[in-house]
Design a protein around this nucleic acid. Structure first.
Lengths: 339, 339
DNA sequence: CTGAAAGCGCTTACAG
DNA sequence: CTGAAAGCGCTTACAG
């Protein structure tokens, strides 16, 4: 027989032990005799008892809840990361309380307040930046914060990104090797470190070969803007023969626009994206792109978070994980190219 | 000055009032004089105080947490729903604790246990079914459960779906009007009500015109399987001239496969999907599909959930929301077609 | 309107 | 190993 909201006291009564004994049986590492454990487990099973996580959190100071702030769920990179994140955290006995945030500083501030009110053990900010004011506040409350896919100068914060600068360079080198003459860049949002780093790496890569881009435009990580940018690039007398796009999400819009204009990607115009979301491998896009190793990024974010929860004095870490060029058919493949 | 984990007692001390007074100021509807409110607010702001949601939950019996179980985050329908769900719930002062679940009954059972341990106020199951055993348990614990995008015979459960049967019919009628002769169906997973209902509606639609499908195969809501099914259909001596696919997620794989075989969708073979995820409108796919009104489905799920939380005796509701055919170019458009 | 006190369901020293 | 008791931070009758 199961009843609503069974408490440890009820289990204790049924098992004929004290309430503390019940608690100990459900507390890993606490001492209880085999006999007690058996009696308690039996009674608990019978009543369908499970310790109240909230009550436990009150006294232990650990809620086993991680707050996740996420902004761009329409970019496939984030659902994929979210799924892995949730699984990894669940495996460690944590769960994710989710907050969808407007990317304004204000919005994030409000959300952080909420997060703290829920006594989360840690906060992961995916594709969201944070003011140093908020950083200080989280620090004061003793709540570790990890930035995911966003870097930050502030060394008090942990951050996990891929090597965006190097990735931008890889893109430049690949397009250069392909013999492209007029290379444009539809950049990721310049308000985000990823957008800036990919762009500067790309420009460095071109500069190293004594070259310059024919155009650089901020695509704001927005499909419509990216599409309009493409349109504009094509409208000029001298259209580009290659476009490096700040992320895959925009690159798909660029490919759609090129085709709508009668151009064949990889033949008339080369396109290289960034992320390697699952969609990039699908036949309709077949996008050459720089892969962000999302699984390793997630695992690193989780272990960084856990380390700081378990040992609060653990210093914050800024970790960069190398990316990789994935060659498909949206961009001309240089003769005899070997990765 | 802000300090870690400020409590109502500290605010009370600073404001020169009792702890209860502080609590009342933060409890909507509780009585406090303007003078008290002012003193308390001032002290609270100074200390950066926010009531501890967990402590509040302990005594009030409301955690303001909704558990969400979700399984297929790679199908764009779900991230889109999740985002809307989170926003809608946030607006009502609730937050989502997320659980990614294997779709096995076992997995869901484990997850439900966890969910209850967190004292969630309600559970939303997205694309996940549930045994009547678990239903009973949630009922006993007084936790409302709402099925999202999955129906169930069990009338003790609330469920929100689109009119899948009718949608299947719409697809049949459209393909029939297009004059297709050999119509195949790569069905949604037959273990799910959506898959079954879409299929039976589709078959009904054909039967109403005295027609039968050339083939019906279970695509399991899986891209690889859908792709293989397509392959198999084409291999026969008489390939289909139209395929109705159980959801968009599989339909994209079908389109990719058709093109890989040199066939032009909408010309050589018509393809109709189900869902109308954002991707369906993108140039590369341009998929004719049955739209599930995800926003209305989410809003309905939320209001159903809230109604049951606020008035536990509210009877469960099974709600079906009408879908709509969205005509694009992946399927031949009948002469003089008007929706 | 306001304060003192009980109690939500637990964990964790503290004695034994 | 085990039980009685304190206490986590709140809300909510209960008096005044």
């Amino acid at each position: 027989m199961e009843r609503a909201k069974v408490t440890s006291a009820e289990v204790a009564a049924l098992a004929g032990v004290s309430q503390s004994a019940v608690s100990r049986v459900f507390t890993p590492g606490a001492s209880a005799s085999a006999r007690t454990v058996e009696k308690v487990r039996k009674a608990a099973d019978k009543l369908g008892y499970r310790p109240n996580v909230l009550a436990r959190a009150m006294v232990s100071g650990r809620s086993r809840i991680i707050g996740l702030v996420v902004a761009y769920l329409d970019n496939q990179f984030y659902p994929v990361a979210l799924e892995r994140l949730s699984n990894a955290l669940q495996a460690e006995g944590y769960h994710i309380l989710i907050f969808t945030a407007p990317n304004s500083t204000d919005g994030v501030g409000k959300v952080m307040q909420d997060l703290m009110a829920y006594q989360v053990d840690g906060i992961i900010l995916a594709s969201v930046s944070i003011s140093s004011d908020l950083t200080a506040r989280a620090k004061a409350a003793g709540i570790p914060v990890v930035l995911f896919n966003r870097g930050q100068d502030d060394r008090r914060l942990s951050a996990v990104t891929s090597a965006n600068r190097q990735g931008g360079r890889l893109a430049a080198e690949f397009l250069l090797a392909g013999g492209h003459e007029r290379i444009a860049h539809i950049a990721g949002w310049q308000g985000a470190s990823t957008g800036r780093d990919r762009q500067s790496g790309f420009l460095e890569g071109l500069a190293a070969a004594g070259r310059a881009p024919m155009a650089v435009i901020d695509g704001m990580y927005n499909r419509d803007i990216a599409s309009a940018c493409t349109q504009k690039l094509l409208a000029g007398g001298q259209p580009p023969d290659a476009i490096f796009v700040g992320n895959d999400h925009m690159a798909f819009a660029v490919l759609d626009r090129l085709r709508a204009e009668g151009l064949i990607p990889g033949q008339d115009v080369s396109v290289v994206g960034y992320d390697d979301v699952p969609l990039a491998a699908w036949g309709a896009y077949d996008l050459t792109t720089i892969r962000q190793p999302v699984n390793r990024m997630v695992d690193t974010a989780v272990s960084t978070m856990l380390a700081q929860i378990e040992a609060p004095e653990t210093p914050p870490r800024q970790i960069e994980i190398a990316g990789q060029l994935i060659v498909r058919n949206s961009a001309r493949i240089p003769q005899g190219w070997t990765p």
